[in-house]
Nucleic acid binder design. Structure first.
Lengths: 237, 237
DNA sequence: ACCTGAACACCGTTCAAGT
DNA sequence: ACCTGAACACCGTTCAAGT
């Protein structure tokens, strides 16, 4: 998506900004990531980023055509960090489980950036590598191409969707996060059996279960369904 | 979440605005929904809403403390519409499928409100009703309480997470949305088999499949896994 | 070649003044 | 009591001018 408007880095001659900083795509992405983590998603604006970098906001437009492009670059950097040095074991189910959990915990490590970028398609190097890898795992397991793509799509979107969901929770200010957790104790666990029989009967389990992410459960269910489908396909062949 | 800063409607005395409109929370929420529907997600700003209502933008601040509050009120209205007159059929799998798809398409109809509200636990009336209903469906199907809660949690979070994911896509400004769709054709479908064998082999399927939400597939997989688990439980009993 | 600074067309929100 | 209008502190983006 983002294309360099200038020749590759090593061929560029860059003048430092007034404040002595030599700009680069890498520096801009790293600074954007830092800004988001330190001051929240709303801290990322072209003007603030320029200030943080020691450069005029408008100078960033030769590195990124829009704010959106910058965001995609940040997203791709996160994917890269998450999948760096990951290797398949040959057990497709274990491999997908590991990939899903890695993406999820990577997102929780940078919750604010994850919330901003989890739902974007970047078309950039790290993302392409991830797509290639996951498709390889599924095709290697024996899924025919149309099925491999369907499972790929559901698997990836589920990983990204839960990552964003849980990252949003983790990105809440602590008082708000505590308040959300307290709702299950304070509201749900106190509903009378007369009006809310199902909640009352399961309140104990709700309080215990809702504290944790349901992603591991949902992931396991998706993998189970995929495995059942694979047996079906193999049985027919 | 939203609290009235003024007494209940029937006790208020309201002066019409210069353009003759009598403001109310209901009218503002309805107008906001219409604005989003007619002119896209980016059309909802306090200033545009004021213009659409025939009132000064600042007058809205006595009805909603922040834009956020307004969006939550819109979201609450949507939950109400989504679950209004929904009734279980007695077929637990069909019922959960229907509930999931309703939530998802409700979110897509109003993406901006959905993105903001999918991540929050409100403890409000509509939400409580939904929890009670879904738990009832699962317990009625024969899931023991701890299992019912686990499946409930995965089901609801999956519905909310995919709703937010797909709503976020729909909420993108049009140029970004178009660019996103084009990535599969323009970037992925052109990768050479030499370096990216799995993408090259499935490119045709990727272009066709990635256009649509994977939620129906992911939902069906979750339901299949839940059903398999139910058979297992029944077999043991 | 690269960065700057002004300009344009927008935002959300507050608050004293008007009716 | 309720709405208005000005003001404040921001946005993203473009482009001629400066170095």
């Amino acid at each position: 998506m983002t294309e360099r408007v200038v020749p590759p880095a090593e061929r560029r001659r860059r003048r430092p900004t007034k404040q002595g900083v030599v700009l680069s795509e890498e520096l801009i992405v790293a600074t954007a990531l830092r800004l988001i983590e330190e001051h929240g998603a709303e801290a990322l604006s072209v003007r603030r980023l320029g200030r943080a970098l020691g450069a005029d906001p408008s100078s960033l437009y030769r590195y990124f055509r829009h704010t959106d492009d910058l965001l995609l670059a940040v997203a791709d950097e996160l994917i890269g960090r998450t999948l760096r040095d990951w290797r398949p074991t040959g057990d497709w189910r274990a491999d997908l489980r590991d990939l899903g959990l890695r993406v999820h915990s990577g997102a929780l490590g940078h919750p604010r950036a994850a919330v901003l970028s989890a739902y974007r398609v970047t078309g950039r190097a790290h993302e392409i590598q991830a797509v290639e890898t996951i498709l390889g795992v599924l095709r290697g397991a024996g899924f025919p191409d149309p099925e491999a793509v369907r499972v790929y799509h559901a698997f990836v979107d589920q990983a990204l969707a839960f990552s964003a969901l849980d990252a949003a929770g983790a990105a809440l200010p602590k008082p708000a996060r505590d308040a959300e957790n307290a709702v299950w104790q304070a509201t749900y666990a106190r509903l009378p059996a007369g009006t809310h029989p199902n909640i009352a009967a399961t309140a104990r389990h709700l309080v215990a279960d809702m504290r944790h992410s349901s992603y591991p459960t949902a992931l396991e269910m998706l993998l189970s369904a995929a495995e059942a489908r694979l047996f079906e396909i193999r049985g027919r062949a």
